[in-house]
Design a protein around this nucleic acid. Structure first.
Length: 220
DNA sequence: GACCAGGCACATC
DNA sequence: GATGTGCATGGT
């Protein structure tokens, strides 16, 4: 893939700017999985509020979630928005977890990765991005998470796959980074961090490493 | 008051 | 296959 070298260089530039980020800290794999759904179209700040609520009310367990009423659960996760939709989605995920491993999420780590990804994608409300976030951050599997930040930032630099599909974006990164789970985690975190701090609208804001990255990309 | 935030399902063309 | 829309809240 023609962009592999650039993708590696951009990673180094972002690392120089931000260093190692402690991203997606959580007390349990289930917390990460539920966070992955809560964060859909929602700022992480509001997700944190809800995760704290779930912890403090001792609701971070598959069996407790599945046995709570939709109304009660929706009220609990309300600060993260889309609460009725997300109640259904989280319950669908939890149903899968109970059926697949009786809620012992660690057991999923021994599953074949592609089988597991297909299973996750079959859950109502779990699309490719949520599925890959779960695989990468909860289960340490090498699946690069492609979100809008990633597409926007890389497109602006001039790096995009031939076809603008999720799978094409993902395989572009897979080829460049060679299935390294730790770098996948860090790279995605760096992209989001940079996008949050800079360049939401204009690529020419002060102090943004993206300007230097664009300069670099223009020489390639 | 408009716009955005770490998407997805579904309908329609 | 591409595009549009509903879902909902909280911050800027």
């Amino acid at each position: 893939m023609a962009h592999s070298k650039s993708i590696k260089i951009i990673y180094e530039m972002l690392m120089t700017q931000y260093g190692h980020l402690q991203w997606w800290p959580a007390q349990s794999k289930l917390e990460i999985m539920i966070g992955a759904i809560l964060t859909q179209n929602t700022s992480w700040k509001n997700v944190e509020i809800v995760l704290e609520l779930l912890i403090s009310s001792d609701m971070l367990s598959c069996k407790k979630i599945i046995s709570s009423t939709d109304e009660k659960f929706a009220k609990l996760i309300r600060p993260a928005g889309l609460n009725n939709v997300k109640t259904k989605r989280i319950k669908s995920l939890v149903s899968f977890l109970l059926a697949a491993c009786n809620g012992n999420v660690s057991e999923l780590q021994s599953w074949n990765s592609s089988v597991l990804r297909s299973s996750l994608m079959n859950i109502n409300g779990v699309g490719p991005e949520t599925s890959d976030a779960i695989l990468l951050y909860a289960l340490n599997k090498p699946f690069f998470v492609i979100d809008n930040y990633t597409r926007r930032m890389m497109s602006r630099i001039g790096i995009s796959p031939l076809r603008d599909t999720y799978d094409s974006w993902q395989s572009m990164f897979n080829t460049a980074i060679n299935m390294d789970t730790q770098i996948y985690k860090q790279y995605h975190a760096l992209i989001v961090e940079n996008s949050k701090l800079h360049c939401r609208k204009s690529p020419s804001c002060g102090g943004c490493p993206l300007n230097r990255i664009c300069d670099y990309a223009a020489t390639q």
